[in-house]
Structure formats: C-alpha cells, structure tokens
Design a protein around this nucleic acid. Structure first.
Lengths: 223, 223
DNA sequence: GGCCTACTACCTACACCGTAAGTATTACCT
DNA sequence: AGGTAATACTTACGGTGTAGGTAGTAGGCC
C-alpha cells in the first residue's frame, strides 16, 4: 500500500515557509499561530516543516526576519543627511508595522541581529559621523531611536479588536473617570489622533531633536 | 467516600494568586508559565484558579498589574518639578523592569489601563501644566516617554540566557563582522555599557531634552 | 544501466496545555 | 437548624510542540 506522495519533494523552503507564516499571522494573529496550522495552510504534514526550520522559536525568528527585510526593500533610495535617513527609516519602519500589526510584537520583543538590521544602523551611523556628531551620541542614537519606535508602535498598534473579554472580572477598562484625573481629561482632545500620522511625526521629531541636542557634547558626563 | 478537602477554602484570592504567579514567572520565565504550573505551585487544583481569575489572559493582566503597582509603591515621595518627576518615574520603572526582566515584556505589550498608571500620568501632566508647557507637548509626553522606556528596556533586558539554540539553523548570530560594518565596529567600545545605568541616564536625558524643546511650541505644525 | 547513499516527507506517539461542564463540600445568614 | 450561595474539585475534550522511527525519491559513482 503506497502512501500519497511520500518522499516526493513538496517544494518547501525556508523562504516559502516564512512567507506563508507571515500571511497566516497577519490573518489570524499570533495567539492561534502554530506549526500545525501553518502546515495545513501549506498542505503539508506538520513535521515536514521541521526539516527546514528547527522549531517554533526559529519559525518566529524567520517571520520577524522576513518582515524586517520589507523595510529596506521598500525604501528605493537613501538620502545623505542623517536626519533624513532617520526620518526615512522611521517612516518605513512604521509603515511595515502598520502592514503587519500582529507580527510587530515579535520584532519589538526579539533582538534583531539580521544583516538588514546591521546595514540600516551602519548607514545611519556613518551619516552621523560624516556630519561631525559626537561619537557617544552616535553610538547611542540607534537604541534611542528604535527604542522609541518599538515602544511607541507597540502601544499604538496593540488595540487588537480580536477578542473582547468580560470586563467584570478582567482588568481592562477602556475609558477613565474624568473626575479622578482632571488634567488627563483636559488633555484628551489633544490625544485624539492616537496612532495617527501627525502624532507620529510630532513625536519622532521630539526624539530626533533630543538626539541632535547631543551633537556637540564633548564628553560623557560621568564615568 | 469523602475526597480530600473538597469545598474547604484553600485561602485563595486574586492577590495571592497574582503574587505567586509573579514569583513563578520570575523564576521560570513566561514560556513555561501556565495555569497548571501555577496551581501546583499553590498546592491547588488548576481549575480552582478560575474561580478568582477568568482565564489565562486575565491572569497575565493580574501579573502585569501587580508588578506595575510596585513602581509607585517604591517611590516614597514625589518632587514638584516635572523633569524630576519624569526622572523619578523612569528610574523606578527601570528598577522594576530589572527586578522582573521576564515579566516586563508583558507590560510593554499590553495596554496599561490600571489606576496606578493613570495616577502616574496625571501627576506628570499636572506638573507640566504648572510649568507652563504647551498643551500639545504635555499631551504627547506620556507616549513619548513610556514609548521610549518600553522599547529601550525591552531591548536591553531581552538577553534571556535561558536557552541556547543551534546557531546553524536558527537566525541568531550574536556578533557581527567588523569588515562589513566599519562604523558600527568603531563605535562598539562606546556601546560597551549596554543596558547599564550610565547609558540609561544618557538616553533618558536625550528624550527629556527633546520633550523640553517643545515646551514653548505655540501651535501644532499641521492640521 | 545498476547500485548505493543522502535527503526529505511522512506517520505515530507522548506529554502537556487551556478550559467547559458538572459534582460535592463547606461557610454564612436568617 | 435550615437554606442558600460560594467554592474547591473532578472529569473530559480538543488542541499544542516535537522526539523517534519509517518509507519513499533524487543524484553521484562504478
């Protein structure tokens, strides 16, 4: 009794698996994602995936790597000024996060050590050096910028309308009492564009201004 | 045939469960955390937990809420100047993150809507208003500051030495090639204190300088 | 052409997970 | 004391990640 197609190559590869995984997480979310779901999506036995990717953790790595590669693929050309480079990178990063809101937590949580990540940082830091910025400021810039980007995008994209639990027992209360927090209530209208483009540009500029302020810092303060 | 102690109260409560859960995640990490493990830790049947907390998601909410409450409990007194308030909050937040590095991803990922979170933001924003800062800058400040804090702490605490996969198939490569990224390599010595206190203070000041630069901004740029 | 080897897809099985539904026991209030 | 609500518990189901073993094919070598 010969089984269906045992031994015959099903055309699997690391890239094809990663692409299907990205698509699946985009559609169904991280919670329900799993090796078995992905395999049935590919029309393949779950264990076949393990021949190309070592385990679920490596699979998640592949997903975040594939999605991160989109960013540098999107930007066709890079400017010369470091500020423009930072702006272009930040906007492309945000666009990617908006395209894949359910994948983004993976990127923010895992350390990024892929080649595309290093290339981006190399591009930014060389431009900053060309501009004569203080070395310590340059060395700090990537972590400040992407720290902010990760935290900000995580916060603005985390409103996943996938499930709604019973508010009686859970800890989620959407709104707050204006009487208890009057200043916050007064400021609420100015926070209306939460997650919007104008807000992002404002906050991005805030961070870049802070970085630029350290441009001529001669020495680290302590140590 | 009478079973062991059916119906007899085991002294469970939401706080006791949350405290045990915090302790367990601190010791064993988020990956292996589960309702059953927690129950056996408490010497209790898994389903008993559901009488106090609705499900695993609510359990994670309780964990992050309990840990977040530590921050305001630590700070005994709050300064008047908004910069000092921000510094105190940021340092207390970082101390908490360092105490619970495996829990912190929960905080950064989930939207924080607990009372302690609102109180902290109310304190910061009122102090900023007292200082006469532009309203839009005040409204943006929480998201800029905590966006940075979450992203930065996520990056610096994510080096979890719990498991080490085979680097042949996985996507993790710890170091990079100095020949490919010369600027990054030249800057590497200045990034030696990764995750350290001096680095944190530097970057925190960078962000606060950026926020302070918008203090007198009269109007939002567009819209 | 015939054979051998390396590769890969596949199946089975195991231990574990979250939790819905139902039952038995206790504590509290009248 | 009696009734009622609360709560600890048991069972069971459909799911998960993945270790181990098997069967089939493709390509190099004589």
């Amino acid at each position: 009794m010969t089984k269906r197609g045992q031994g015959k190559p099903a055309g699997l590869s690391r890239e094809r698996i990663a692409a299907a995984a990205v698509d699946l997480v985009d559609r169904q979310g991280l919670e329900s994602f799993g090796v078995r779901r992905l395999a049935s999506e590919l029309g393949v036995d779950p264990m076949s995936i393990y021949n190309h990717i070592k385990g679920k953790a490596a699979l998640l790595d592949a997903i975040s790597e594939a999605v991160l590669a989109e960013v540098s693929a999107t930007a066709a050309q890079w400017p010369d000024d470091w500020t423009d480079i930072a702006l272009t990178m930040a906007r492309g990063y945000r666009d990617m996060a908006i395209r894949h809101p359910r994948i983004f937590p993976l990127l923010a949580t895992r350390a990024q050590t892929s080649a595309v990540a290093f290339e981006a940082l190399e591009r930014l830091t060389t431009a900053m050096r060309r501009a004569g910025i203080a070395d310590q400021t340059i060395a700090d810039a990537p972590l400040v910028l992407f720290g902010f980007l990760n935290g900000y995008l995580l916060a603005t994209l985390s409103t996943d309308p996938g499930e709604a639990g019973d508010p009686a027992m859970g800890a989620t209360q959407p709104a707050f009492d204006p009487a208890l927090y009057p200043t916050m209530a007064a400021l609420a209208p100015l926070q209306a564009g939460f997650g919007g483009e104008a807000e992002f540009e404002r906050m991005l500029e805030t961070v870049l201004v802070g970085i630029a302020a350290g441009a001529t810092r001669p020495q680290v303060r302590q140590q």
